[in-house]
Design a protein around this nucleic acid. Sequence first.
RNA 1: GCGGGGGUUUCCGAGCCUGGUCAAAGGAGCAAGGCUUAGGACCUUGUCGCAAAGGCGUUCGUGGGUUCAAAUCCCACCCUCCGCACCA
Length: 962
Amino acid sequence: MKVLPQFEAKWQKAWEKAQIFHADPDTKRKKFFVTFPYSYANGPLHVGHAFTAARVDAFARFKRMQGFNVLFPWAWHWTGQAIAGASERIRSGDTDFIKALREIDGVPEEELQRFTDPEYMAQYYTRENRTTVRSAGFSIDWRREFNTTTPAFSRFVEWQYKKLRKKGYVTKGTHPVVWCTHCKSPTGDHDRQEGEGVSPEEYVLIKFRYNDSFLPAATFRPETIFGVTNIWMNPDAEYVEAEVNGEKWVVSHVAARKLKEQKRDVHIIRCFKGRELIGKEAVAPLIERRVPILPARFVDADYASGIVYSVPAHAPFDWLALKDLQKDSDSLMEYEIPKNVLKRIQPISIIRTEGFDDYPAAEAIIQVGAKDQCDPKAEKATKFVYKKEFHKGVLKENCGKYAGKTVQEIKPILVKDLANKNSAETMYDLPQPVICRCLHPCIVKVLEEQWFLKYSDGRWKNRAKEALDQATICPETATQWFLATIDWLRDWPCARRSGLGTPLPWDKEWIIETLSDSTIYMAFYTINKQIREHEISPEKLTADVFNWIFYEEGDRDEVAEKAGIDKEVLQEMRDEFTYWYPVDMRNSAKELIPNHLTFFLFQHAALFPREHWPKMIGANGMLMKDRKKMSKSKGNFVTFRGALEQYGADATRCALLLGAEGMDDPEWRIESAQDATNKLESFYKLSKTISEGKFDDYRSGQLEAWLVSILQHRIQRVTDNLEKLKTRTALENAFFEVWNDFRWYIRRKGSSQNEVLKEALKTWVKLLTPFIPHLCEEVWRDLGNEGFVALTDWPKSDDEKKDPAAEEGEALVKAVLDDSLSIIQATKTKPKRICLYAVADWKWEIFLEGLTLSLKEDTVQNHLMKQLMQSIDKRMGGVDKETARFTSNVVSQINRMPRDRRERLLLVGKINEDALLRKAKSFLEAELDSEVLIYGEGETEIHDPKNRAKLAKPYRPGIYHE
RNA sequence: GCGGGGGUUUCCGAGCCUGGUCAAAGGAGCAAGGCUUAGGACCUUGUCGCAAAGGCGUUCGUGGGUUCAAAUCCCACCCUCCGCACCA
């Protein structure tokens, strides 16, 4: 055991020594450029990375064998907060995190100490992961390696952003984010203790007038202002009177703090309890209606402004709160509210909706059975009414100039109108609490002066769609997802205040964030070879230089001289870029479709001419462990390195690639990896018996013809599937199906010693090379070949080598065997003698005529029987009973065959069953452990006590067991 | 909620676009036999039900429909996974 992994290091060294994966421009050969999104250097690579990368490598190797000059480069992503964040967690002594580094990543203690320096940490993982990738045997040109904080790369990103800005794709703006006031930074989903998936929601604040101040009531439904009857405040909550942007506002105490973070100048004048205003009156804007302020427990001062207005006809909470108040007259006394105030309040119906009468709120309450304003069912009723009215509601006549319009269309117009009159503003808040990892509650902050990539731009979107359209997407089903993403994408904040990365060239306070500095970097691979080789210092990489390399803008010699770069080197870089670009295939996990891969399209569309747009994009599933996404915190994290150490590269790759294809999520199972190891072992053993065999058998009969023929089909299938990046199907065919073919051959022949088989093994090894490259090199050498199988030619399916007759012949033998076994099983008896009856010639004639007729254009299938019978009648001058029975049998058989099958059988024509069966006699006797006698149907000297001979059909000899 | 995928025989999965060779590939698991000192190796067979003759019956989320013929096409419904942004 464990003999295979020993080969791996050996072949990796040999490849490296021969530099076979170094790819340089060669105008005589067609190029192929494949890429894998660089991994983030904040931890070890896991088997999920391995899965994706194995697909890329298999594809790269396949294309290389097809004769393409293949470039597969690699780099490391250092940009962003995550590495800095990880460092921070070590510094602050996060025990769980440190434990994970020790136990899962296997970081040595002395290294761990130094991880407090983010750069060191990135270096460490880059080093570790490079070793891992190398021992996986990927066919990488390492001369182009870099990480995203190296100065040369930063020059490239600077160039990119200046270009984008010049083209108008970068803008400045404000944006709401979930914000931790303690950490003073945005709190992404990953940084949350609580509140995963919660994002800011925009409320409309309708500014009711109260004396000399405003009561901004928060709502999602500003159109309901026409139905307002009163205002709700929580009597026990803390409110403040505050100066907000020079106006006097009354809001909850919490709201005042929130507003401060949302571009407002806020000074608190005084604090008071909500009850102070209960019973007073305010004036609704637009409709200028005086409404009372009433108490309600359902009003949560922690949400939005802490003040809401009441629309009982259309809002279940309001309806319930009003009823609660009517029942509880004591509380009215408490606030000294005259009873008639409440009596005067009548729900005002303002929206007509199909399926509702005047008071949808009341209807919905009855439907869900909500008791009072504190009943959770009220929430359900609210959603129900909201949804119905939003989609189908029309404003009634009492809504002024908005009457007759649908809720959906009127909403933005109304908000705008109100805002113009200073009667409404908006504020953001979170629909549910969000707690930061630091255990402080988060709020919404509006960040100002942020830099955005204008992915909202319609023209840019269209160009991105064009880029998508001209690319091949694998699997095809991902196309829809890309399209939806392009449509849905808004402006993307492309820079942050902290973390590693390249500062924005015109505003150095900002650092270009991870997803934004990684969109066209594949172009950098093409030239980084020269940058490293000639040690071109970063300051020489000016905008002029990049413009010349990528666009051939300006005069080469002038640009070279000004930059201080040798003009020949500059030319080489340009040649290198034009040779390798565009990217021919980029593959990643599907989770990158809604961000990275779409950005990749957008930015290529923005910065490069059409001929440099990506040609093909692949997306694969996410590796699962125990049916869950792999993560360190769930404890189901399997490192790539660990898998390699345990099973070796070939078996790991094999197990991964057999797991899934398309966008399905593969499951990592140690059994699969173990199983793959065993399979490879036995493949190796089998290959040895064939390659080391001493034989002088060069005969080639039907069996050999069959083997060669069937192999052509396998080649076809493996090739077709690999082209579509269907790595699982390809490997399955290359490995299992071919293996089964070999089994049948050896079984039929009773030996593995034959020249044709040995030749077939060569083809087999080639088909497997993209998937299990190390072992294949070994077998290739064992077969007596020189050089690397990695560099040999990919097999081509050759129609000349296809032999349908041989295939059908073998199918006949297999069918006889299967039928006999089935008889044995049904009868539960073991035959001493088996008689086979080859079909009579007249049946062949009818069969072939039936096939011919069925292929005629004007033949309707249900009339085939009639036509065939007529023809037989004419030819033979009458149809006897047996002929009729057989014909009907044959017709139903033909009717069930697909057209290409019928064509094929017709092409093969009549086969000599008798001779074929005689040749297979000894094989069948051995397999069935019985004497086998062969007769022709209708022969005179025939042993046929049960009249089985007449059951014979073409490809289906009659069988009699005794 | 919005958007994108899926539901196939014990399991993983192919087939569906382009209806017929489909009781449905391949692999795994399980069972039996063989080979072996032994085997987590290998070879053969079986693995929906029934069957003393190669067959018959019932299956491809559920319910309808189209067709000579449906896992495959159409309609409705149910279930499920994934993505939803300042974050890699």
